[in-house]
């Protein structure tokens, strides 16, 4: 989504190109067009578009993608800091 950009240089997304088998699932499921399939391998073409939703990693059958998934929600982050992880859910925070 080119019109909306968030803080650059923060994404935890890493692609192990050597392990990639070029199935193309990552480029299919990514809602921000972060991946592109070129020459039978996936390639990260827009790392700052990544919102760390984790769809690519979940659907990589050879585990070539790692990312720390989560929700980019300030009130959720605040709640986990105040109450501890696991207790708070992002449900009542309003976003999800």
């Amino acid at each position: 989504m080119e019109t909306f950009r968030y803080l650059p240089g923060t994404s935890t997304l890493v692609l192990d190109t050597a392990a990639c088998v070029g199935c193309g699932e990552c480029s299919l499921v990514c809602p921000h067009g972060v991946f592109l399939l070129t020459d039978g391998k996936a390639k990260i073409v827009d790392i700052d578009g990544c919102m760390e939703c984790g769809a690519c990693a979940v659907n990589c059958s050879v585990k070539a993608i790692t990312v720390t998934p989560g929700v980019g929600c300030a009130s959720y982050v605040l709640k986990t800091r105040l109450k501890g992880k696991g207790i708070s859910t992002c449900g009542s925070a309003g976003c999800c």
Binding site: T10, G72, C73
Partner: peptide, 20 residues
């Protein structure tokens, strides 16, 4: 406004942490 990050479809958790 910072809390609105949770309602958008493009903010990443790492970015939100950095912002906060």
């Amino acid at each position: 406004a910072m809390n609105f990050t949770g309602s958008t479809p493009f903010t990443s958790p790492s970015g939100v942490e950095k912002e906060m």
